[in-house]
Structure formats: structure tokens, C-alpha cells
Amino acid sequence: MIVKKGKVLVEQRYPVNPFSSRQERHKGTSYLVMDPKRSKLAAGLKTGLQHPPQEHDIVLYLGASAGYTVSFLAQQTPLLLAVEFSPVMMQELLFIAQELPTIAPLLADARQPEQYEHRLCEADYLFCDISQRDQVDIFNKHLKYLRRGGIGALALKTRSINAVTPPDIIFKKVLNTLQQRMEIVEHHRLEPYQKDHYLIIIRNDTTL
């Protein structure tokens, strides 16, 4: 995954990616182009994200949806555990998983990780993209599945927490509560790609 001329590119290893027909060549390798308006990870990379998932990271992904971001990430990771609770979204995700053998799909409510933790393994990277009022809670509940020193990314949608309070105030509040318990590595406002969204990156350091 690289950013070139402001574009997020993902190396193409599998023949089919239902979401990206655009390809570009870069230093002799073929890349798929990712849309920052559809992916908060891509939006993060465009706004300066320094800690995206690395090549060998096992990723725990919450809110996989129909698999847009997942379809790119799964091409570089050895294992992507994808949690999604909408059956219809999961159908789409399964179609993608047929093409990408690194996706482990879980149809489950991320509010209750106890119900599926036996189906997980320790992750190097936690990515949480769930637009719910309790999204921060959901993120926190999954930190225990992240290895020590692992990276957690929270795609924060302030509108889901409160549609009336200004986004930056909610963001600061969330940042404050997170800060008390963990090391914040970086954070980005995802404007103009994603309205009222932030990306907060933490390191799972149990000493705090």
C-alpha cells in the first residue's frame, strides 16, 4: 500500500477486485487505485496517516460492510478477521472472500466480542469503522485482542455519537478519554474525503 501523487495504491495480486477497475503501474508493478471517498483508510493515507497496516500484519477489522476497504487490505495481509453484523453486507463480503483467501468473515455484533472471541486470534492491527453511538466502546472492547505494541485505528464518525454537537468538540472529548488509557500515536481529520470523520491511531501499550 503506497501513496503516489496523492493516490492510494494497493498492489494487485489477485485477478478480481470488484471495487476497483482502475489500475496504475508504478516501478513495474501493477496497482489498484483506492477511493478515499469510500474508504476511511484511504482517506487517512491522503491526510497524512503514518501507521497504516503493514505487509505482514494480521488485521482485525470491525464493520467490514460490503468489503470495499477489506478488498484492498486483504491483498497484503496474511489474515484479515472481518466482523460485520448486517447479513446483507455479509453476503457481499462472502463473494469477495471467495476471491481473497485471507478473509475470515464473522457475522456478529461487535458489541459482544465474548460471543466470537474463540474464533479470533491475536491481531497486529485493529481497524474499527463502525458508525454507531457506542463506536468508541466497541473499539475499546477489542483492544485485548491486539498484541502488545500493536496499532489500533478508530475511524470516528462524530455524527453517530451526536448529530447536534460540533464534530471537533466530540473528537476532542473522545481523544481525551482515549488518552487517559493509551498512547495516541497520531490523529487526522478526514475532511474533505469523509465528512465529520476522524481517524485516531493508538499503540497498544499495556504500561499505561
Partner: peptide
């Protein structure tokens, strides 16, 4: 590790397909 990952993918896929099969879509 690769073997283990494969196993996780396979088992989770099977369970998910089962869950989809038993979903009743009443609200939907």
C-alpha cells in the same frame, strides 16, 4: 502460522455461511 490462518478462514467462513442460512430476515 499459514496453516493456522487457513484453518481460521475456513472455520469462520463455514460458521458465517451457517449463520446466514438460518437468518430469518423478518425485519428486512
Amino acid at each position: 502460522a499459514q496453516q493456522y490462518h487457513k484453518k481460521l478462514v475456513k472455520e469462520n467462513t463455514q460458521l458465517t455461511i451457517q449463520d446466514l442460512k438460518t437468518h430469518e430476515y423478518v425485519d428486512e
